[in-house]
Simulated assay, not measured.
Amino acid sequence: MTSKRERVSRTEQKTRTRTAIVAACRELITSGSPVTMPEVAGKARISEATAYRHFSEIVTLINAALVGLWPSPAEALAPVADSPDPLARLEFATEFLLRRVTAYQGSVRAVIAATVTNPPEVRQRPGFRFGLIDQALDPVVPATTPAAAERLSQLKQDLSAIVSAEALFSLTDLSGLDTDTAIASLQRTARTITETALPDILAAQRD
């Protein structure tokens, strides 16, 4: 019969193992290295099977490891918090996101790959871009009428396809651009989309 002390010991061991797995994954993320379950298990000095017992999906593990590595949208955009210019705020948000994507690209690529091959996992993706886009636009773009809110929502949807890891990797991997050039290209595209949409949003706000 299992004693209370043995049960506590097993619980503590599980906690230590889980903590080690998350720490190993976080180390891989911050190094920009590829993040796979075998790599995580090796760094945590456990078997791959043990890693999978604690985290059945790599996306779940990466989400746990990302806690504390990304600032909140308000913290990220603090340098432009006082700016009333939505274009300047969006440009800053775009660069912030894509620089962090570049730094953590091993984990970002792992999440993209996992959600492509297993679509139900898509909803577990961190989705940092959406909070940054909201923080860039909401404080300075009025949308108090239903029509303006609808147009602002559409703009955000359009921007989410541009202010994204997928767009960045498309330019660097497929078009062969260096990171700086790719980010500048996406900033210009985001600016153009926003400049086109803003007058319509403001007009809807007045209606």
Rank of each mutant, 00 (worst) to 15 (best):
S164D: 06
P126R: 14
P84W: 09
R45N: 15
E95V: 07
A41C: 13
P86Y: 06
K156D: 08
E150F: 14
T192L: 15
I62K: 08
L66P: 01
S56N: 12
P126C: 11
T36M: 14
P38Y: 13
A136S: 09
Y104C: 02
A49N: 15
T194L: 08
L66K: 13
R123M: 09
A64W: 02
P139Y: 00
T115K: 06
A93N: 10
G131K: 02
D180A: 10
E121Y: 04
F128D: 04
Q135K: 09
D134N: 05
Q135T: 07
R5E: 13
S3G: 14
D200G: 07
L28R: 04
A81Y: 09
A204M: 04
A147L: 14
V40I: 15
K14Y: 01
D207V: 04
F55W: 11
N118W: 04
D180Q: 11
L98F: 05
D200N: 12
N118L: 07
A147C: 11
I29R: 06
A136R: 03
R206N: 14
D138F: 03
L152S: 05
T144G: 12
T189Q: 12
A113D: 14
A93C: 09
E166L: 10
I183W: 00
K156Q: 11
E6S: 11
S153I: 00
T17M: 02
R89M: 11
L90A: 15
I58G: 05
K43R: 15
T189F: 02
K4L: 14
R45S: 15
E195R: 14
T36K: 14
E39S: 15
E166Q: 13
L159G: 07
L174M: 12
T192W: 13
V80K: 09
I46D: 03
N63V: 00
M37Y: 10
A143M: 12
R99P: 00
R7S: 04
A20I: 01
P199A: 07
L177Y: 13
K4N: 12
F169N: 10
T102E: 08
A114G: 06
L132Y: 10
S33T: 13
E57S: 12
A190H: 03
P126N: 12
D134F: 09
Y104S: 00
A93I: 04
E48C: 07
T102C: 00
L159V: 07
L69R: 13
A204I: 06
I46A: 04
